[in-house]
């Protein structure tokens, strides 16, 4: 771990302002991902801004019937919240499918959105990785890629977004709210929040420098059956090979976002009209343009079959 300086701030705008003062500074919330990365020197920020005391820890209903989730609400509280469980069961299930009880107690809503890939080559600083060291190359593409991305990837990077929460939020049409050092606010819909890697896989979101996430807004609930099916090699405490977040209505229409296959939660709204025709047609459309490796081409079938499992479950 590189030596760093540390400060604690009291408001969101102060946090953004503090970040503006020190290039490369990082916000510290739950720290469940950042501290691990710092110990391995994958992240080496010169300055840490502790945002643990700036509030943003409430879950509130909005006048329009939606739900505003503070950036620092922890995963445990969010998953257990009565409105979340009643109206956004998908989110609760996705959260509880991730990490462990101890991690969920610390991990925050904003931090979870920004967690970094689990590509093993990203994690080993001796290996080539364009995400960790831009322009250095990618050892994963010709290496062990069973866990890695099949779509939205590039010849510079095939890493996936590893989380569960954002996959559910993508299906729920969530919006990310932010503030900058001048107090200006933005609302970024989750469908454009994550960048695809292209030749710049180290740039992962459209957040601007010094911009702080303050909340996630969920639109009013849409009903339907909420299913989060996370497929992995062990039953708990593992990242998804494929995860499917689905909201299926009685008439067979629905929304489906998929995790574990792309640099961001993968949802193609245009494919969803095919859901009533079944998983095969839907998955074919969803995965158009996929470029799997030999080691992860099984994910093409796995996506289709997991969607089929979810549709089967929704009909029972």
């Amino acid at each position: 771990m590189k030596t760093f300086t540390y400060e604690r701030v009291n408001t969101p705008v102060e946090a953004a302002a503090a970040a503006a003062r020190t290039p490369g500074a990082k916000f510290l919330a739950g720290g469940t991902n950042l501290l691990d990365l710092m110990k391995l020197e994958i992240e080496a920020p010169p300055h840490i801004i502790d945002i643990g005391k700036i509030g943003l820890d409430k879950i509130e209903s909005t006048p329009a019937g939606g739900l505003l989730i503070g950036a620092l609400v922890n995963n445990t509280d969010l998953a257990a919240h009565s409105i979340v469980r009643r109206d956004y069961g998908l989110l609760s299930r996705a959260l509880l499918a991730g990490a462990s009880g101890q991690l969920r107690n610390k991990a925050t809503t904003a931090g979870n959105l920004l967690q970094r890939t689990r590509c093993p080559y990203f994690y080993d600083t001796n290996q080539l990785c364009n995400k960790r060291v831009p322009g250095s190359g990618c050892a994963a593409i010709a290496g062990f890629s069973r866990q890695l991305g099949i779509i939205g990837t590039s010849n510079a990077c095939i890493a996936t977004y590893p989380g569960d929460m954002a996959v559910a939020m993508r299906a729920l049409d969530a919006t990310v709210e932010t503030v900058n050092a001048k107090g200006a606010k933005r609302a970024l819909s989750l469908d454009r929040f994550y960048r695809l890697p292209g030749q710049t896989p180290h740039l992962e979101t459209i957040l601007e420098k010094n911009e702080l996430i303050t909340a996630v807004l969920l639109p009013p609930p849409v009903g339907g059956v909420h299913i989060y099916h996370k497929v992995r090699d062990r039953a708990s405490y593992a990242f998804a090979l494929v995860s499917v977040a689905a909201i299926i209505q009685k008439n067979g229409s629905g929304r489906v976002a998929v995790g574990g296959i792309a640099p961001r939660p993968w949802r193609v709204e245009g494919a969803e009209s095919l859901l009533p025709s079944g998983a095969k047609a839907f998955a074919a459309q969803l995965l158009t343009g996929a470029r799997p490796t030999k080691e992860n081409e099984y994910k093409l079938a796995l996506v289709e079959r997991t969607v089929a499992a979810v549709l089967n479950e929704a009909n029972h």
Binding site: R118, R234, S236, Y237
Partner: peptide, 19 residues
């Protein structure tokens, strides 16, 4: 290609959990 065990931590090398 590189010549090593890639998944060299307890996140990458999965052992059974209680579940």
């Amino acid at each position: 290609h590189v010549g090593f065990f890639v998944n060299h931590d307890l996140a990458g090398y999965e052992v059974p959990v209680h579940a």
